[in-house]
Design a protein around this nucleic acid. Structure first.
Length: 800
RNA sequence: GCCCGGGUGGCGGAACUGGUAGACGCGCUGGACUUAAAAUCCAGUGGCCAUUUAUGGCUGUGCGGGUUCAAGUCCCGCUCCGGGUACCA
């Protein structure tokens, strides 16, 4: 009676595959449940033990919900466009497509070896043309809605590699690949107007069942702030400078202005005397990355332009400076500086000896800026007001005179949506000789990626596509005009922005998804994935979803109802797993040594799903030994009888049904497993259980250890998969006790226990306890002040 | 700096809306089986102190206060660790 997990697991994996056990279709007679994993990027190194953590959790929920009678959608696919593959292609001269397909096969084999209940008929890959056709289709929708535009923006340009890098490819101001310096450079890029959705992306967070910290991260990222815009005239120029401030009440304290080096007026308004210095400063700033500029935050630098602005509130002339502590990407790229009440301005003013005026009482502006609340002084018509009132009054004052207005600003910036790379979705866009642009129509899609000889970016910073003349140039069949294709491709986020919708209707070749499928399956009821996607992926996907909602392609405002982030699994040494540390655990090896069911069970038993936890080989052995015991006990038919079940077993069985059910609902898999261990221990002590008990237990264990349970189920004579069974219901009558062993404490200290009927009157309980012979010792010479009786919990005697 | 998490045995972790701290697992100790080891099974296991024993007591959830009959759990003040973020005007 050996637990031969290797054979058992292979057998059932083949069974599920052949019978398509987990294939799912729309079924209006049943309620649906959509459980989704963040689909992986199929890297060359295969699955690591972090992947199966989230996948096992969703798999358990999916199998459980199915047994609860729900129609469960549980799909898997591949986020298969991406830079690592392309870099590998450059290095080896292999086609990225071939690398991708190979990696997908590895990932898929590994996943199937873990017995996940995916409907593999819905498998998708973002790099397949039947998928990215629809990514392009969504782009055309964004474009036609006016949410996609081309603009000259600052990007991370690496002169050494001659490529533009995504922000995440820049580490400490250097390229992740090779460590070459990166500068900020303006380049024409496709942009998506995510900022237009900032307010909704923010407010709709409230209704989501997401971890609070993720919501908070998104809120911070969106960074809403209320304030006012103020217009300053420039002495000797027709132009004006508009600034955004959250503290219009401090306008009387504005003693200078600062433009960011990239501000269009910076060079323009410099007087002859200062022109050279300003130009030098701007030139210098352009060489720095954002990171360098912010890193050197200790020492603020800047130059005077020689020009003055007029403070609208008192007509004072105030000097205009250019300094890189003001960022072009936030607000208007210009500020009014109030050194008395803004620490950054204060530091700058001290450095360059600029005037500091106190306009709010409460601090000591000699020592530092005072950013708190207080009574206004030196502030004309808002003197004596507090902060809030002063802001309101000043804002109205500005609005009446058309010198400014109430305004809300967001930290969120429009999304740089193009990459100068080969391995991504081509833009469905044509450019004509006259500079005009046409976004293709649906019947012209897809724009497929052409074959290329070399995957290196062209030296000009364009993608390799710029070198394929046969693809690049064409006569537009719709207009007859000569045209050139867009050579940029979309970033990796594009494909992952809508894959959850494609899963609803993955084989549809007429449309990205049918309305009926979307209406039935959406929204995603449970979404599990890594916290590293807290902001970008989840924000981008929400943004696209809202656009699709506005265009009536989807029926829910938000795509992901409930979100959980699985916690990182550390190496045995408590450090992050990495090749260089040599502490990486390969799931294949674990499966080989202990089986997939043990790996699944261990990953869930380690601790709470969302916490960081270290790996432990002995821990795996522990759950492996549990599964061995389960197999040995329940597969030994001599232990299984047909008599009436023992009441003690029935009690713990029904407790277990209830506990495991509740724990799965709350994603507390570790305690569910512990309960099943307790149950098994009890059965083994008892030595025998009846068949009904055994079958019930196998059912509740089956979402966790599906292979083992299918095997036992078959052993008990069943022909159908256990996954088709209904989840057992617990019977309350076995959970109700009629006595309780009360802990009796005196002044909060536990002294002894006494078993009493639960229906006993309080007065009687009190009498019994006080007369109990163990109580004598504690009552001697003391006076009983009160007896507190909490039914089913505790008795506390208060004595003095 | 700011914003989130989190400090419970030798270790991973349990403890529902305040009500028996340490479930379950690992490790360790002792025992059984074995020529022996591994595997398996049985028993014990927070610390300290008493006792001849089956026992009894003290103490204990990062630190210091507080609320309460009762605090790992609530409140106030610290401290340490982890994650995110960074001149956002």
């Amino acid at each position: 009676m050996k637990y031969n997990f290797g054979d058992i697991e292979k057998k059932w994996q083949k069974y599920w595959k052949d019978k398509k056990t987990f294939k799912v279709e729309i079924d209006h007679s049943k309620a649906k449940f959509y459980v989704l994993d963040m689909f992986p990027y199929p890297s060359g190194s295969g699955l690591h033990v972090g992947h199966p953590e989230g996948y096992t959790a969703t798999d358990i929920v999916s199998r459980y919900k199915k047994m609860k009678g729900l129609n469960v959608l549980h799909p898997m696919g591949w986020d298969s466009f991406g830079l690592p593959t392309e870099n590998f292609a450059i290095k080896t001269g292999t086609h990225p497509h071939d690398i991708t397909e190979k990696n997908i096969q590895i990932f898929k084999r590994q996943m199937q070896s873990l017995g996940f209940a995916y409907d593999w008929d819905r498998e998708i890959a973002t790099s397949h043309v039947d998928y990215y056709k629809w990514t392009q289709w969504i782009f055309t929708k964004l474009y036609n809605k006016g949410l996609a535009y081309e603009d000259e923006v600052y990007v991370n340009w690496c002169p050494e590699l001659k490529i533009v890098l995504a922000n995440e490819e820049v580490v400490n101001g250097k390229s992740e690949l090779g460590g070459h310096p990166v500068i900020r450079k303006p380049m024409k890029q496709w942009m998506l107007k995510i900022t237009e959705y900032a307010e909704r992306l923010l407010t709709d967070l409230d209704e989501l069942d997401w971890p609070e910290n993720i919501k908070e991260m998104q809120r911070n990222w969106i960074g809403r702030s209320e304030g006012a815009s103020v217009i300053f005239k420039i002495k000797g120029f027709d132009e004006v400078i508009e600034v955004f401030t959250t503290r219009p009440d401090t306008l009387f304290g504005a003693t200078y202005m600062v433009l960011s080096p990239e501000h269009k007026l910076s060079a323009e308004i410099a007087t002859k005397q200062y022109k050279q210095a300003v130009d030098n400063y701007i030139e210098n700033a352009s060489r720095k990355s954002d990171l360098e500029r912010t890193d050197l935050s200790k020492e603020k630098t800047g130059v005077f332009t020689g020009t003055y602005a007029i403070n609208p509130v008192n007509n004072q002339e105030i000097p205009i400076w250019v300094a890189d502590y003001v960022l072009i990407s936030y607000g208007t790229g210009a500020i009014m500086a109030v050194p008395g009440h803004d620490q950054r301005d204060w530091e700058f003013a001290k450095e360059y000896d600029l005037e500091i005026i106190e306009v709010l009482k409460g601090g000591d502006i000699e020592k530092e800026a005072f950013e708190g609340d207080g009574i206004h002084v030196n502030s004309g018509f808002i003197n004596d007001l507090g902060k809030e009132d002063a802001i309101a009054k000043m804002t109205s004052w500005l609005e009446e005179r058309k010198l400014g207005k109430r305004e809300v600003n967001y930290k969120l910036r429009d999304w740089v949506f193009s990459r100068q790379r080969y391995w991504g979705e081509p833009f469905p866009v044509l450019k004509y000789e006259d500079g005009s642009v046409r976004c293709l129509d649906e019947d012209e899609l897809p724009v497929t990626l052409p074959e290329v000889d070399k995957y290196e970016p062209s030296g000009t910073g364009e993608s390799p596509l710029a070198n394929i003349d046969s693809w690049l140039y064409l006569t537009d069949p719709k207009t007859g005009k000569k045209a050139k294709r867009e050579t940029n491709t979309m970033p990796q986020w594009a494909g992952s922005c809508w894959y959850y919708l494609r899963f609803c209707d993955a084989a549809n070749d007429k449309e990205p998804w049918s309305k009926a499928a979307e209406k039935y399956w959406m929204p995603v009821d449970l979404y599990i994935g890594g916290v590293e996607h807290a902001v970008l992926h989840l924000l981008y996907a929400r943004f696209w979803h809202k656009v699709l909602y506005d265009l009536d392609f989807v029926t829910t405002k938000e795509p992901f109802k409930k979100l959980i982030n699985q916690g990182l699994i550390l190496g045995e040494d408590g450090e992050k797993m990495s090749k260089s540390r040599g502490n990486v655990i390969n799931p294949d090896r674990v499966v080989e040594a202990y089986g997939a069911d043990s790996l699944r069970l261990y990953e869930m038993f380690m601790g709470p799903l969302d916490k960081v936890k270290p790996w432990s080989e002995n821990g795996v052995k522990g759950v492996f030994s549990f599964l061995n015991r389960v197999y040995k006990f329940f597969a030994s038919l001599k232990n299984i009888h047909d008599d009436e079940e023992d009441i003690e077993i029935l009690k713990i069985l029904h407790q277990s049904i209830k506990k495991v059910e509740q724990d799965i609902e709350n994603l507390r898999f570790n305690t569910a497993i512990s309960q099943m261990m307790v149950f098994t221990n009890t059965c083994m002590k008892k030595g025998r259980v009846n068949k009904s008990t055994a079958q019930t237990f196998i059912k509740i264990l089956s979402p966790f250890a599906p292979h083992l349970c299918e095997e036992l189920w078959e052993l008990y004579g069943h022909k159908e998969s256990i996954s088709k069974e209904l989840y057992p219901e617990y019977n309350k009558k076995y959970l109700i006790e009629d006595t309780f062993e009360y802990p009796v404490s005196f002044n909060g200290k536990l002294r002894f226990r006494v078993e009493l009927p639960l229906d006993m009157e309080n007065a009687e309980i009190e009498k019994t306890v006080l007369e109990h012979k163990s109580a004598e010792k504690w009552l001697a010479g003391k006076q009983v002040k009160k007896v507190i009786i909490i039914k089913n919990k505790i008795i506390n005697v208060v004595i003095a």
